[in-house]
Nucleic acid binder design. Structure first.
Length: 262
DNA sequence: ATGGTCGGTTGCCGA
């Protein structure tokens, strides 16, 4: 099974790029974040025509929004609310082989890494706490699961262009990294990208729109992740970032990440 | 130290 995750930053604007991605990578399932699209306006037919007729969506006007677009049928789908908000940040689907796929868009958290001054940062930390609590309360480590998404945290030193310069920048602060580690340790999730690429090697999935030349500056962060539970650990065959996609015409600021299982 | 660019609930907010 091949799974791709991509923060598309508007599915209506970039549906043609998503089709290009499907043709190039040929995943079994594509998980999108920041679709920014109410369900009634989702471009279903574009994906059906591309050979991906199984679609689970949870979107709203203007903000957030997630989708799972699949070549394979689902046996069930679900969407959960987090931190008491109906803000379309999670969708899940189960496949006939029993694998349960969870797609998340974790809150970005604003600019100031101080919960007293910035309620968005508080929301982000609470969201991560609820993720840990939900999985530990409702699922066991021996369940075959995949967790993907824009987690908006670059946990490791070489997940950012400068560890030192980003220690106080939201996405790489110690408190967020610790909360994300708590989610990961809850069920013993395996970070598939770092299973394949050593921790000493720089690895990014996001580059700001604000850079004059994003590729030359290469001031990236690894915000997008694919995790699997222990039963799927020895099925990890590959993990790759499609950096080229960041250089496409009218790109998303995130690049797609693909993990090959089995 | 600051500002830089995107997308959509556009002349602002969130990222």
């Amino acid at each position: 099974m091949r799974i791709t995750t991509w923060n598309i930053n508007s599915v209506r604007l970039r549906a043609p790029l998503a089709v290009q991605l499907l043709e190039q990578v040929q995943p079994d399932a594509l998980c999108l974040q920041e679709t920014k699209c109410p369900d009634e306006h989702f471009p279903h037919q574009t994906f059906i025509d591309a050979g991906y007729p199984h679609i689970a969506i949870r979107g709203m006007k203007g903000y957030n929004g997630v989708a799972i677009i699949s070549r394979l049928p689902f046996t069930s789908t679900d969407s959960l609310d987090w931190v008491g908000k109906q803000d379309c940040r999670h969708i899940s689907a189960t496949f006939s082989d029993g694998i349960e796929l969870h797609n998340f868009y974790v809150p970005a958290g604003g600019d100031e890494p101080d919960t007293m001054k910035n309620e968005k940062f508080d929301h982000k930390l609470k969201f991560l706490e609820e993720m840990r609590d939900w999985f530990t309360a409702n699922r066991k480590p021996d369940a075959p699961m995949v967790l993907v998404g824009d987690l908006n945290i670059a946990p490791l030193e070489h997940d950012v262009w400068s560890h030192k310069q980003l220690l106080k920048v939201v996405s790489h602060t110690p408190v967020e990294v610790e909360r994300l580690a708590a989610v990961q340790n809850g069920l013993g999730w395996i970070d598939t990208a770092r299973h394949v690429t050593p921790e000493t090697e720089k690895l990014y999935t996001w580059w700001s729109y604000r850079a004059r030349d994003w590729a030359a500056a290469d001031k990236g962060r690894r915000l997008d992740h694919v995790w699997v539970t222990p039963p799927l650990g020895d099925k990890i065959k590959d993990s790759s970032v499609l950096r080229d996609a960041r250089g496409w015409e009218k790109p998303s600021d995130h690049a797609p990440v693909t993990t090959q299982l089995g």
